[in-house]
Amino acid sequence: MTEPPVTPDGRYIVVRGRLWRRANPHLPAVERQALVARLMDARRAVGRALKADDAPALAAARAEVHRAKVGLGERGPVWWQDGAPDQNRRMVGNTDYAAWHAALDCA
């Protein structure tokens, strides 16, 4: 599997033409590892809840996924300090990264 393109500033990856915010690279390794483990546990809980058709468990598991992603910096307040706006989940062609991405496709 090839890695998705990463924007030059390291803030986003591009998946199927859409920007997705990357985890905060400044998190200490131990904290990041704990948050990733928490995220994976929560994703497994989502799967179990879906399989069991358990709406309350599904809501709780999805809330835990969200909390882990906020902790990682993939959601919630941005982790960079330069005042640049968050362009998470936007189509790359409609963002400041459009020219960069177009140049990738030509390479």
Rank of each mutant, 00 (worst) to 15 (best):
66 H>M: 11
54 D>P: 06
21 R>A: 08
40 M>F: 01
75 R>I: 04
42 A>C: 10
106 C>I: 11
72 L>Y: 10
5 P>Q: 02
93 G>Y: 03
41 D>V: 03
96 D>Y: 06
89 R>V: 13
34 A>W: 06
1 M>K: 00
78 V>P: 07
25 P>M: 11
83 G>V: 07
17 G>E: 00
75 R>C: 07
30 V>H: 10
83 G>W: 08
51 K>G: 08
100 W>P: 06
85 P>L: 12
7 T>M: 09
59 A>Y: 07
20 W>A: 09
26 H>V: 03
11 R>Q: 00
71 G>V: 00
59 A>K: 14
64 E>R: 10
35 L>M: 13
27 L>F: 05
86 D>C: 13
71 G>D: 01
75 R>Q: 14
64 E>C: 00
28 P>H: 15
101 H>M: 04
25 P>W: 05
56 P>R: 07
71 G>R: 01
67 R>T: 13
60 A>K: 11
32 R>T: 00
46 V>M: 08
26 H>S: 14
82 D>A: 09
5 P>W: 06
13 I>T: 13
11 R>D: 00
78 V>N: 04
24 N>S: 09
47 G>A: 11
75 R>Y: 12
3 E>N: 04
100 W>I: 06
16 R>S: 13
6 V>L: 02
102 A>V: 09
4 P>Y: 05
45 A>L: 05
77 P>V: 11
6 V>S: 02
14 V>W: 03
97 Y>N: 02
64 E>S: 14
19 L>A: 11
23 A>S: 14
107 A>G: 14
63 A>M: 06
49 A>Y: 02
43 R>Y: 08
87 Q>P: 06
61 A>Q: 11
33 Q>N: 14
76 G>I: 14
87 Q>R: 13
15 V>D: 02
71 G>S: 05
78 V>K: 13
100 W>C: 08
45 A>K: 10
98 A>L: 05
17 G>M: 04
103 A>F: 06
64 E>D: 14
10 G>Q: 05
53 D>W: 07
10 G>I: 08
91 M>F: 09
89 R>W: 10
65 V>G: 09
83 G>P: 11
105 D>H: 09
72 L>I: 00
68 A>E: 06
53 D>Y: 09
86 D>P: 07
101 H>N: 07
77 P>T: 14
28 P>M: 12
98 A>Y: 03
6 V>A: 00
17 G>R: 01
30 V>I: 13
28 P>T: 08
79 W>A: 12
102 A>E: 13
33 Q>S: 15
43 R>A: 07
62 R>K: 15
